[in-house]
Design a protein around this nucleic acid. Structure first.
Lengths: 244, 244
DNA sequence: CGCCGAATTGATCTTCCTCAACATTGGTGG
DNA sequence: CCACCAATGTTGAGGAAGATCAATTCGGCG
């Protein structure tokens, strides 16, 4: 486990993340409980439980999900480096969803009981917490449009472009290629489609020369056509975003 | 337009809303820009625009939605008395969704530029803003599960129970009956179903003696069976919730 | 080599959509 | 008060997207 000096945090070197002054960095370092590393497949947070921790993803991919009675599950969203998970339970008391590790994960650990001090002493960070929640809401809104209004082909294309852009923003994708730790089953669980159908749709996307998925990698073959198909627009480059 | 003394706000007399101390109430009264009333059908906030206002719904029903290329729209969520709309744009800068009035609406108006002062001087209220965002996220999560995993019958049942419970929490529903300003088309747009299909599903629900929808009113005929069908659980009674 | 999870393919079935007609309702102006 | 109109709701027939069930096949990996 490394030291707690957030000034050394490799994430903060990314231009996309907002720099914060020494007072804030010192405060974060103080309330940071350490770093942990968990294996792929680990359940970090569990629906129904009350977690005392929240985490910033330092490296790796995680996913938020909810189970259904019949053993199925819906993937709600993904978490990439820089994203914060567990805020909902810190604010509302109980987890209404689970968070799992898609890959080996490095996490920065915070304690729920320190959240209040953020609000009393660090308005900029408090605002950042609201920002995180609002951003999650935006993504969920878009997902809802996708699940409610799009065809299967559009849903898959939309999800892939979305993940691609988020990954690229934190330096995980090059121009048209991305390593993603997702199975076709995962795509299906995120989109409300069966793995069988996902497989057939991916074939169509490849045949049409839009996107190629092989094993654990996406390749965007014709970005413009894909965007048109999925009614997707590349998000404006964020100025900077907060990080905890 | 009434005066700005939030101590007189009829909403705050509901037991469900958290009381706040005089300092906070005075502050809210100060940043409150007044009350407005808009007719049913009015678009309060519009996708793509940058709004300078956020609103607390004092009375009436509103809905958040996003349009699609082909003229369709997805309803993302509804807003009832006590709910806050426009927070996303206050935090992120631009509206990524629209908000419309389902009924005549009374709104309490706030200015986006006063939000920062909430964070610097009123940690309790700042926390409340994060709470609002986190609660919206919870609802969206549940909606995603519904759209992704449930059958049409389950989706409709789930939505009706959800709306019923939210309305009841603010005193708008009696034991099994609720006046709702929704057309079958609205239900379809919230669930990603056509109005034709919604109509048929509602018929089935009535035939099975679960829920009866006539004109603008829902009647829950067999709550237990409906909950079982939709995999829905009545939310624990909230202690109190914030209000702005 | 052999095993296991994931991917792939085919055949069939269900849910929901589309298109189209018609009925009902509530509101508005004569 | 009635006649008309537009919006909403209702019903039918046929089609398409996606689910289900069931085999294979592929790709690492011990």
């Amino acid at each position: 486990m490394r030291g707690n000096d957030c000034g050394l945090c490799p994430l903060r070197s990314h231009a996309i993340f907002r720099t914060c002054d020494s007072r804030e960095r010192e405060f974060i370092s103080r309330i940071k409980k350490g770093e942990i590393e968990v294996a792929a497949g680990t359940q970090i947070l569990t629906e129904g439980e009350q977690s005392n921790h929240l985490y910033t993803v330092l490296s790796g991919w995680a996913f938020r999900h909810k189970g259904t009675e019949d053993g199925g599950m819906q993937i709600l969203n993904f978490a990439l480096p820089g994203d914060l998970v567990g805020l909902q339970s810190a604010v509302m008391g109980k987890m209404e969803h689970s968070v799992g590790a898609l890959t080996k994960l490095k996490l920065c650990v915070f304690d729920r009981r320190d959240v209040w001090e953020i609000y009393t002493n660090h308005p900029t960070l408090a605002f950042a917490l609201t920002w995180f929640a609002a951003r999650e809401e935006q993504i969920l809104d878009q997902n809802l449009v996708s699940l409610g209004q799009y065809t299967g082909l559009q849903k898959i294309t939309h999800l892939i472009l979305h993940l691609f852009d988020r990954a690229k923003a934190v330096g995980l994708a090059d121009n048209d290629h991305l390593q993603v730790p997702l199975t076709q089953q995962h795509l299906g669980q995120a989109l409300g489609l069966t793995n069988v159908h996902v497989n057939r749709l991916l074939r169509i996307l490849a045949e049409r020369g839009l996107i190629e998925v092989r094993g654990n990698s996406f390749r965007i073959l014709d970005r413009a056509a894909a965007e048109r198909l999925a009614n997707y627009e590349e998000p404006a480059k964020e100025m900077t975003r907060p990080i905890l």
